[in-house]
Each structure stands twice: as C-alpha cells, then as structure tokens.
Design a binder for these strands. Structure first.
Lengths: 348, 348
DNA sequence: CTGTTAGCGCCTTCAC
DNA sequence: GTGAAGGCGCTAACAG
C-alpha cells in the first residue's frame, strides 16, 4: 500500500467528470446539485481509490478550517480530562478535529495558544479552566492577562469563529457558567444540617477565580448560619493532591486542634487531605470529616466515600462544544452543582 | 481590533520587497538567504502589521503540517490523560500542535483517525492504547483491524511521517514497549513472598493485549511458584471501575470463598474492586487483599493505599514523542514496571 | 541576493 | 446540470 496521495482530480479523471463536479458530488455544494448517476459514480470511484480530502486544502479554499481548539490548564487533571472527553466526543460528532493545548497552568501559554488557533483559522476555541482573580495577577500571570485573552477571543469571534469558556464568564463571550459559589454554599448548609459547627477550608490558589468562588461561597453560607470559619481555618494551597496534603497538614499543626470538618475546594485536594489526616495518625471521618468538590469519577470510590458537590463534567464538554458552535440559542449555559453526602461526612 | 487577515503579500508590498523575499526573511529559507537590512525591514513591517502565517497555506505549500496526532482509547481515563500530558508538553517544546482523538475504545475510530492524520499530512502520529489479541478480534473489532492499522501507519511512515506506538509493538513500527507481563510476574512473586498463596485475577477484557499480557505474566509466575490460579479464579471484565466492581463481585459470589489476594490488571479496576469488597460487607485487606497496575497518580491515596506496579506514565508521553520524531537512536524504548507494595497487601 | 513564476488541492463564481 | 478558470496564502524551483 504505497502512498500516492490520491487527489480530487484523480477521482474526477477516473470517474470521467470535471473537477468541479467531483467536488460537488463529494461534499454537496450548497448552490449546485449533481445528477444522481454521476454522483453515484464519483462517490464510488472515490471509495475505490481511497480518496479523502486534504483538510489543509479545504481550509485554504474555504477560508476556515475544521479544527476545534481546546485549551486546558492540565490535561492530566481528571477535571480537565473529563471535560476533554466530552469535547472530543461532541467534536467528532460534528466532524471537527480537536487540537489540544495543556498549558500547565501558565497563563502566557493560554494566550499563545489562542493566538495560534486564531491564525490557524480554527472553527472554534474552547477555553476551560479558571480565570484569574482581578488584582491577583502576579508572577506567572502578567497583569491584564485575562483582558488580553478576552480581546483576542472577541476578535476571533467577530471574525466568525466560535468561542466558549468553561467555568466563569470572560467578557460577554459564551460561557458554561459553573455555579461554584452556589454549590459551595449548599455544601456548607448541608454540612451544618448534618451537625457540623467547626469548619476548615483548604482554599486552593487565591489567584484562581474557581478556588476563590468556592471558598467565598462556603464561607458566606457559614457566616449566614452564624458559625463563620475564622481566617486561621482557611488555608491556601495548590489545586493538587499535594496542595491538599500540605494545606491539611498545616491545619492539623495549628494550635487548638483540627476543625470538625474540612472543605477542600476540589476532590483531588480532598484526597490529598485525607492522606494527610491518616499520616498524622488520625482518621477520616472519626477525627476530621472531609468534603470535596467536583465529584471526579475515578475518585468516587475512595474510602471513606467522599462527600462532594457533583458537577456534570462529562456533559460540560459537550455543552461547551455546542455553545461554541452556536448550536444553542443562548450564550450562557448555567450549570449547578449538586451536593452529594457520603461517608466522609457522617451525621454528627 | 478588526480581523482583516494580513497576508504575506501585504507585508511584502508594504516593505517594498517581493513575496519571495518576504517569505525567506520571515521563515529563513534553507537555501537562500536575505540581506540583513531587508530582512530587518520585512520583519519590522510584519510585526507592525500583526502578520502571522496561515498554517494551512504553509502546510499545502510545503506538503507537511506541523501537527502531531495523538490517538487514545479514552482521554478521561487517567492512564491516557497522563500520557497525553507528556505528549502535549513535549510537542509544545517541538513547536508542534497536538490533535487529539479519543476513540472510546472503538477500533474503527482508531483507524479512521490515523487515516485522517495521514491525509492531513501530520508530522507524526502517536498511537497509545492496547493492541488486540490475535484471534479475538470480534464485535467492534473487525478482523484484521490491527493489520490495517499497521499497514496504514507503515505507509504513513514510508511517506516520511513519524510514528510511535505505546504499549506493545505493531509491526516493526517504533514503540514504547511496556513490560506488562514482566511487571505482573514481579508482582506475583512479591505477593507470594509476602505470604499469599490463594490468588484471584480480575483479568480485564480478553481481547486487549495489555490485559492479556498482565494476566498471563501474573499466572505464569504463579505457576512457576507452584500455586497457580485456577480458571475459576480469573474473571474477565471491562477495563474500568465498573468492570473491576463487577468482576470482584462475581469472584466473591463464587462458592468456596474469596481468594486471599486479588490482582486487578489496572488501578482503576482495583479501586472498583475495593468498592465491591466493601459493598459485600467485607474489608480490604482484612478479608481480601487487592493489588493493581499502573500506579495512577490520583489513585495513590485511596485507602488502604494500593499495591501496584508503577509505570512511568508521565515520561512515556515524552518518550513516545521523541521516538515518533526520530529524536532517539533506537526504534524501541523499553519501559519496565516497578512493584510498589503498599497497605492493600500487607505481609501475611 | 532578489524577483518571477508555478503550483500545492480544493472550492466557487462564471459561462455554457 | 456541467465544465473551465481563477484564486485561497504560501513555498520552491527557476531565472536574473
């Protein structure tokens, strides 16, 4: 099976028709149509010759590609890989090719990839992962990063490209808006109902909106219930297993003993936190109860089973894809979390 | 910021040079070079006009793209997402764009994507995920599937494309060869050393080479030690959490009581298996010890901590990328597993 | 060293 | 309904 790239003109010649007819037969022009028998013949020889169109050539002729750019913070993180699975599936259904960028949490790479996708004339761009908290844009996040991203994506959109962000809105771009604050509030209330009164929070990275919103939602609800978590009970950390481990360790080392229950702002951190509790010779939930956020599928079976806020990550990818492609009426797709109480936070 | 795609000819005209010179200045042709002052001038106007080349046009003119195709069974599976992270990182370093295909375990989509990547003139293709066991290719796997895949990839390679497979070899294509059988054998010996004598195996899908190799490696080592697992003790199942859960449930329902230790051929199944044990009112490792394979990072903290065979998944992605790009001398990169004994299989 | 000229593979007016 | 011809943006021989 040698590789003499069979082109449209091969097919046309072989089928005894013109290039134009072959083209119209194979992807059905909007304006012109082709006589049935010719169409048949072209399709048949195309199949026989193993023809398939060159995406680059089509892209150039049409002025737009068939690519869908997906930008995530870290594809190894189950949060993102689950979303990516949804995107990949929906994109395949739409006949689009997914180009993936895993930025490893470096905002500059986020922007660089968006620019790349733009000049590649991608069909659409999906930007997953938290935006930044205004004013906290330091270090790896150049000031104005999100603004630059917004401008670039807006220009892309004005030029006819599809855009969707996942998490929180960026400008007035289409968004799958996750109710992080609301979910965390609901969790706080549920834990309060379960009898907990002394709370700790593993707050994640302060500069990430997602982490900040979950933390704020949780603390606000607690305050409303009259048992606010003090600042000492809120420990920042990375959005990772180790971040959760370290933050929980810090909380345990604190004078005054551990809180009754600790809310880690995502499941991955929660699992790290549980490990820290055990390594300290304590037990979950005996000594400290633990709750997370996301309901990551592969983490659902940790022991004790983890209380969390379920986010339909698998659907979010498909939703974002539809949104980016303008398949939905609205430009905002709200997604709510659902509190799932499990063994890691028994009634108290 | 409107989006009037500025092309090379705009830049050339504006800089007062020919199209060819502009092209050479911007990309640096291999053969020709450009006078310093002209180059300077072209680059400057390019920057000023916000020019950036159209990848599709370049692809067409050059006959090759800058895309790296990555094919996985399921990007939501941590095994693959970890590999993908490595690939994404290495590809970015090489200036390549990753196009992702998540086939959802459908072999036909695997082939379809490879063909797509070929006609797209991708720079390289990385095929991750298990090959099939010869003779077991039924159902969703048309007979000869792997052969077709091999032929297609070989043709791609002969035409100058880079190829790497991950897991086991496919024809004589470059491969990151994971020693699944050896790792499983070592695990069997380690468990035997730890005092276990009655073994069960959650064997995964019989048609997948990876699952079959791990199962065979484990059983062979046991046989050599004189305490072979009977066929009744080997239960097939899906390569997922639910697959592990169901297979373990079946094992527990069996007359004669559970084995002392159960080897699940991957960590995800092992976690499902643990859940099944608990749901049956038994404990791990008190009633049944459990071991897995892969050492998935996010699963490292399940309780009890999971004994497994560690595979350096994060490095494998980078390795496969280098291999596909011919950055390494050899065409075979062997990867061995390392047994990691943890709390889920205490000394007995 | 620079400019001119063909294409790359396909789509799409435009005539027929 | 069909074919011929031009052009998408860029590169790579070719001349000069």
């Amino acid at each position: 099976m040698p590789d003499a790239p069979v082109t449209l003109s091969h097919v046309a010649r072989e089928a005894g028709v013109s290039l134009a007819t072959a083209s119209r037969a194979i992807n059905g022009s909007a304006t012109r149509s082709v006589r049935e028998d010719l169409r048949e013949r072209v399709l048949e020889t195309a199949r026989r010759l193993g023809y398939s169109p060159d995406p680059s050539a089509q892209a150039m002729a049409r002025g737009r590609t068939t690519a869908l750019g997906l930008v995530v913070h870290d594809i190894a993180d189950p949060y993102f890989s689950t979303i990516a699975a949804g995107v990949a599936d929906a994109a395949e259904r739409e006949g689009l090719i997914v180009t993936l960028a895993s930025t490893q949490h470096r905002p500059d790479r986020e922007l660089a990839f968006v620019e790349l996708a733009r000049r590649q004339r991608s069909r659409a761009i999906i930007l997953a992962g938290s935006r930044l908290v205004p004013g906290e844009e330091v270090g790896t996040a150049p000031a104005g990063h999100d603004a630059a991203l917004r401008d670039s994506l807006t220009a892309f959109r004005d030029a006819g490209g599809g855009v969707a962000t996942v998490g929180q809105a960026l400008g007035d771009l289409p968004v799958v808006e996750i109710d992080n604050a609301g979910g965390a509030s609901a969790l706080a209330r549920a834990l309060h109902d379960a009898g907990y009164r002394r709370f700790g929070v593993l707050a994640g990275p302060a500069r990430l909106r997602t982490a900040a919103d979950r933390t704020a939602g949780f603390r606000d609800a607690l305050a409303a219930l009259g048992c606010a978590a003090g600042d000492d009970d809120v420990v920042p950390g990375e959005f990772t297993r180790d971040g959760g481990y370290n933050a929980m360790s810090a909380l345990l080392d604190r004078a005054g003993g551990p809180p009754e229950v600790v809310f880690a702002v995502n499941d991955v951190m929660a699992v790290g936190a549980m490990a820290a509790v055990r390594d300290a010779g304590l037990s979950v939930p005996g000594d400290v109860a633990v709750a997370g956020f996301d309901d990551i599928h592969t983490l659902r079976d940790v022991s004790p089973r983890l209380t969390t806020v379920r986010i339909p990550l698998d659907e979010i990818g498909a939703l974002a894809t539809r949104l980016a492609l303008g398949r939905t009426g609205d430009d905002v797709a709200p997604v709510r979390g659902e509190v799932v109480l499990r063994d890691s936070t028994p009634l108290r």
